[in-house]
């Protein structure tokens, strides 16, 4: 998908910035919240992270050069806030309340239950996990996944394929990516 540059300048005035925030950032709030929930496994912490991210976006909004890139830009801020939030908790992971032993054994057409699937995703590498969440849960195209994770599209695709292979080793890639 070819990105078309939308270089319409954003306002530098307070009132203009409020309108830009209303038009560009607020529609992304729910998506940012879902992303934060997926990363933090804590709805309250996720709301806090989105609020912090919104404040940061509000302050930096006049510096955005391309309106078409606002979504990955804002979601990137959310990801950073979530990482900061986790750092402040002095833990590298979050207790998601998932038992160590899987209650359902994977099979050819068996579906992992939600908790099991989250556990499986959680066992992926940090960046791979983020790519999976952004692509499947937040429903971003690969170009924007790459923008949020700060990598190339090829690298994001490679991470995604690797993660899918681990989550659904029996599925063809193209089928799994649907």
């Amino acid at each position: 998908m070819q990105h078309v540059l939308d270089a319409t300048p954003l306002s530098t005035t307070i009132a203009g910035r409020e309108k830009d925030f209303e038009d560009l950032i607020l529609p992304l709030a729910q998506r940012g919240y879902r992303l934060a929930c997926a990363m933090l496994h804590d709805p309250q912490a996720a709301q806090d992270a989105v609020q912090e991210a919104s404040l940061t976006a509000w302050r930096k909004l006049p510096g955005v050069r391309d309106r078409g890139r606002v979504r990955p830009w804002f979601l990137g801020i959310v990801v950073n806030e979530c990482r900061n939030s986790r750092r402040l908790k002095w833990v590298s992971g979050v207790d998601v309340g998932i038992p160590d032993a899987l209650s359902v054994v994977s099979g050819e057409d068996r579906i992992l239950r939600g908790a099991d699937l989250r556990r499986a995703v959680n066992q992926l590498g940090k960046q791979d996990r983020l790519v999976v969440i952004l692509f499947f849960y937040i429903d971003l195209p690969l170009e924007e996944v790459a923008a949020v994770t700060g990598s190339s599209v090829g690298a994001a695709r490679a991470r995604l394929y690797r993660a899918v292979k681990r989550l659904r080793p029996d599925l063809e890639i193209q089928e799994a990516l649907r």
Binding site: V96, G114, A115, L117, R118
Partner: peptide, 14 residues
Amino acid sequence: TLRADITSAYDEIA
């Protein structure tokens, strides 16, 4: 699909 499974799994905690 995997997408639906993941969406369902994370909607549980969001």
